[in-house]
Simulated assay, not measured.
Amino acid sequence: MGQPVVHFEIIGADPQRLRSYYGSLFGWSFDTGGPVAESVSREGEYGYVAPAVNGNATAIPGGVGGGYGHQPHVVFYVGVPDVAAALREAERLGGTRTMGPEQVPGGALVVAHFTDPEGNLIGLAGPA
């Protein structure tokens, strides 16, 4: 396999409601204390989902957030060594940049979004 999926997000205008919904539905718990890029979610509104271990499989970590002004969407992030280079390649191949690259405040992580030629939203994540 090439680059792996490393993170997912569920974003909406009412992140507290979404966290309550997915917490009840799937038994997820959330940590809202971590930093997040403002274009991804409002500060304090993003809840990281800790990856659970089920037998020998480890789940992909994720987050549920957003807030006023954030359009509802679901996105998965592919881990890449150079987010800017991967974003340029996505555009060269027919994708469209929609966000970033943007460094997570106080962190060593860079994120970006693009849409593929069919309009599907995809995220990229990698080191700063």
Rank of each mutant, 00 (worst) to 15 (best):
P4L: 04
V5P: 07
V5D: 02
V5Q: 13
V5C: 11
V6I: 15
V6S: 15
V6C: 13
H7P: 02
H7G: 02
H7V: 06
H7A: 08
E9T: 03
E9W: 01
I10L: 09
A13T: 03
P15M: 01
P15E: 02
Q16D: 11
Q16E: 07
R17H: 05
L18S: 12
Y21K: 00
Y22E: 00
G23Y: 04
G23W: 07
G23I: 05
S24V: 14
G27F: 09
S29Q: 14
S29N: 10
S29C: 11
F30H: 02
F30R: 05
F30N: 04
D31V: 08
T32Q: 01
T32P: 02
G33P: 06
G33C: 11
G33T: 14
G33Q: 08
G34R: 15
G34Y: 00
P35K: 05
P35E: 12
E38L: 04
E38I: 05
E38K: 14
S39F: 05
S39Y: 03
V40F: 01
E43Y: 08
G44L: 07
G44K: 06
E45F: 05
E45I: 00
Y46L: 00
Y46F: 13
Y46R: 06
Y48W: 01
A50Y: 03
A50M: 09
A50L: 12
A52P: 12
A52N: 03
V53M: 07
V53G: 13
N56V: 09
N56L: 09
A57V: 11
A57S: 08
A57P: 14
T58F: 08
T58W: 11
T58V: 15
T58C: 10
A59H: 11
A59D: 15
I60F: 04
P61D: 08
G62W: 14
G62Q: 05
G63W: 05
G63D: 07
G63K: 00
V64Y: 00
G65Q: 02
G65T: 02
G65V: 00
Y68D: 13
Y68I: 14
P72G: 04
V75A: 06
V75Y: 00
V75W: 02
F76K: 03
V78N: 12
V80R: 01
D82W: 05
D82C: 01
D82G: 10
D82R: 12
A84W: 07
A84M: 09
A85E: 14
A86R: 10
A86H: 03
R88N: 07
R88G: 02
R88Q: 07
E89T: 15
A90Q: 08
E91Q: 14
R92C: 03
L93I: 09
G94Q: 00
G95V: 09
G95E: 08
T96Y: 04
R97W: 13
M99R: 15
M99W: 03
P101A: 06
P101H: 08
E102V: 15
E102S: 09
V104R: 11
V104T: 15
G106C: 06
G107T: 05
G107Y: 08
A108M: 08
L109T: 13
V110I: 14
V110E: 12
V111P: 07
A112I: 14
H113P: 11
F114L: 10
T115N: 07
T115M: 04
T115G: 13
D116Q: 10
D116L: 00
G119D: 04
N120H: 14
N120K: 07
I122E: 02
L124P: 09
L124F: 04
A125N: 04
